[in-house]
Amino acid sequence: MGETLRSWKELPLSALPFKLSTEFKTGDWRTFRPVVDQEKCTRCLLCWVYCPDMSIVWDGQRISVNYDYCKGCGICARECPVKAIEMVKE
C-alpha cells in the first residue's frame, strides 16, 4: 500500500557535497585588490605560501592573482619582503 519506505541500507551514507567550491567565486568579498609589481617581485613565493585563498598563481615564471577568489585580506602585501604587492581600493 502506498510507496515502500527505503531500508537503512538503501539510504545515502551521509550528506555528500558533490560540487567543487571553485564553482563558488569569493572575489566579490573584496574591498581592496592586491596588485603585483612584476619588476619588484623576486619570485620568493612567500605570498603563495601564505595566501589563505589559494589565489596567488605560480606558472613557473611569474606570480599572478586570481581575482575570482581573492578576498583582499592583504596578507600577501603585508608579507612581501620587497613590497612588490600593493593593496588598491576596488
Binding site: P52, M54, S55
Partner: peptide
C-alpha cells in the same frame, strides 16, 4: 589539495 571558493573569513589562518 585545498581549493579556493571556501568561505572562511578573509585572512583566516585555518586554511593556511
Amino acid at each position: 589539495k585545498l581549493l579556493p571558493g571556501h568561505r572562511l573569513c578573509a585572512g583566516c589562518a585555518a586554511p593556511i
